[in-house]
Simulated scan of single mutants.
Amino acid sequence: MTRPDAVAVVVPARDEEVLLPACLDAVAAAVDALRAAYADVPTQVVVVLDACRDGSAQVVRDRDGVVAVTAHAGCVGVARSEGVEAAAAWAAGVGSRSLWVASTDADSVVPRHWLTSHLGWAADGLGLVVGTVEPRPGDVSAGALSAWHQRHTTADGHDHVHGANLGFTLDAYRAVGGFPLLPTHEDVGLVTAMREAGVPTLATGAVPVVTSGRRTGRAPDGFAGYLDGLGA
């Protein structure tokens, strides 16, 4: 399979002025690594400012190579969907015929090799990459962190799904109707639909993303709520 000819990163953000800078720093490092490895592959970072009432927009304005999309839904499924649509419009504008979309969250930090790994797997014929996340150790108690590791594997073949660490082709995304417009578990809905459609998939622990261990999150029944249930 021919590798994708463009890459977009989609980041939904809802009142994330504190954590968004670190997220975008890490994404920028991953983009730099991708450009060093694949100089002919254009990239775009899309931040979806969803019902933000803080300074998140200013964080984005100060960043080169990052564009903002404004949403008002207060719903992560809608925000991710609008981000992918903006990425698709950008890709069409640069003449892309095979866009790879990488998804993360505004409170998360991706590894430098995140995008280069995704593109390599895509070139091998994969249409979906499902990565792992780990809570930032300093954000949770030792007991909660221990409970997390007891319940989660970060090995290849894991069965976890996190919107903070996904990658997929635009074609596969379109074929299953995109992200469900849900306030939570939109990531699980998309991955389930892609797997049921037979999209070649890799569940990998090779590109772990570190995410906030806060107990009050932006999505109901999301990652923060789960950590709270562990006694974080």
Rank of each mutant, 00 (worst) to 15 (best):
residue 165 N to I: 04
residue 104 T to K: 00
residue 177 G to H: 04
residue 25 D to C: 04
residue 165 N to V: 00
residue 4 P to N: 10
residue 43 T to N: 11
residue 28 A to Y: 02
residue 131 G to L: 04
residue 220 P to D: 09
residue 34 L to H: 02
residue 210 V to H: 00
residue 127 G to H: 00
residue 212 S to D: 08
residue 112 R to M: 13
residue 109 V to T: 13
residue 230 L to S: 11
residue 209 V to S: 08
residue 65 G to A: 14
residue 27 V to I: 11
residue 43 T to A: 13
residue 197 A to E: 12
residue 203 A to L: 10
residue 57 A to V: 10
residue 45 V to H: 02
residue 191 V to T: 08
residue 40 D to K: 09
residue 213 G to W: 02
residue 222 G to A: 10
residue 2 T to Q: 13
residue 161 V to L: 09
residue 117 S to M: 14
residue 145 L to M: 15
residue 140 V to P: 02
residue 215 R to T: 15
residue 191 V to L: 05
residue 143 G to C: 04
residue 198 G to H: 05
residue 159 D to V: 15
residue 73 A to S: 15
residue 7 V to D: 05
residue 156 D to P: 03
residue 186 E to R: 07
residue 19 L to M: 15
residue 12 P to L: 09
residue 180 P to H: 10
residue 150 Q to C: 12
residue 182 L to P: 01
residue 115 L to V: 06
residue 1 M to L: 12
residue 149 H to T: 08
residue 32 D to N: 10
residue 54 D to R: 10
residue 123 A to C: 09
residue 153 T to I: 11
residue 130 V to M: 01
residue 150 Q to N: 14
residue 120 G to P: 10
residue 122 A to H: 05
residue 12 P to Y: 13
residue 205 G to C: 04
residue 72 H to Y: 12
residue 38 Y to M: 05
residue 212 S to W: 00
residue 206 A to V: 09
residue 115 L to R: 01
residue 89 A to T: 14
residue 53 R to S: 15
residue 195 R to D: 05
residue 205 G to K: 01
residue 164 A to D: 06
residue 42 P to L: 06
residue 149 H to V: 07
residue 112 R to A: 09
residue 160 H to I: 12
residue 36 A to D: 15
residue 2 T to A: 15
residue 36 A to H: 12
residue 166 L to W: 00
residue 229 G to I: 00
residue 47 V to C: 09
residue 23 C to V: 09
residue 45 V to N: 01
residue 113 H to E: 08
residue 167 G to L: 00
residue 196 E to P: 08
residue 158 H to Y: 06
residue 33 A to N: 08
residue 208 P to E: 05
residue 131 G to I: 01
residue 39 A to K: 03
residue 125 G to M: 12
residue 138 G to K: 03
residue 39 A to T: 10
residue 228 D to S: 12
residue 168 F to R: 06
residue 112 R to F: 08
residue 193 A to N: 09
residue 149 H to I: 05
residue 192 T to Y: 02
residue 53 R to G: 09
residue 164 A to V: 06
residue 31 V to R: 01
residue 158 H to S: 12
residue 117 S to G: 15
residue 80 R to Q: 09
residue 155 A to I: 04
residue 193 A to P: 06
residue 217 G to L: 04
residue 190 L to Y: 05
residue 86 A to I: 07
residue 9 V to Y: 13
residue 156 D to G: 05
residue 81 S to C: 11
residue 83 G to K: 02
residue 131 G to S: 08
residue 88 A to T: 07
residue 110 V to M: 06
residue 65 G to I: 14
residue 24 L to F: 03
residue 73 A to N: 03
residue 175 A to N: 07
residue 123 A to P: 02
residue 60 V to N: 00
residue 193 A to Q: 14
residue 48 V to C: 06
residue 205 G to P: 02
residue 190 L to E: 04
residue 202 L to Y: 07
residue 97 R to E: 13
residue 66 V to N: 02
residue 68 A to T: 05
residue 53 R to P: 03
residue 126 L to V: 07
residue 178 G to K: 03
residue 203 A to M: 11
residue 142 A to N: 06
residue 115 L to K: 07
residue 130 V to G: 02
residue 179 F to K: 00
residue 2 T to I: 13
residue 43 T to K: 04
residue 58 Q to I: 02
residue 195 R to I: 11
residue 130 V to I: 12
residue 7 V to R: 05
